[in-house]
């Protein structure tokens, strides 16, 4: 089974500072796109939770007013 934390800790995604080249730029691409998608997934989850919470609150206040 792929151990993601091992890959991250091994510096696979860390570009070389001394000899930054094409391969390093590809590492940055991989790291950058993964990070953007992870952040986006977290934000989507947050919005879904917020929307669900608001809907429940609205339903409750609707029931209370009856």
């Amino acid at each position: 089974m792929l151990n993601v934390s091992t890959i991250l800790k091994s510096g696979f995604f860390t570009p070389s500072i001394e000899n930054f080249g094409f391969i390093d730029s590809l590492k940055v691409m991989l790291r950058g796109m993964l990070s953007i998608f992870v952040v986006t997934a977290v934000l989507i989850l947050l919005v879904v939770i917020l929307n669900k919470y608001s809907r429940k609150k609205k339903e409750k206040s609707g029931e209370n007013s009856k």
């Binding site: 390093d24 730029s25 590809l26 691409m29 950058g32 934000l43 989507i44 879904v48």
Partner: peptide, 22 residues
């Protein structure tokens, strides 16, 4: 909120250009 995924994907050009500029 799923539309945010397209915003994320459309940043690919930044990193592709990084490789080309290198």
């Amino acid at each position: 909120p799923k539309l945010m995924l397209f915003g994320a994907a459309a940043q690919f050009g930044i990193f592709f250009t990084l490789s080309m500029a290198t």
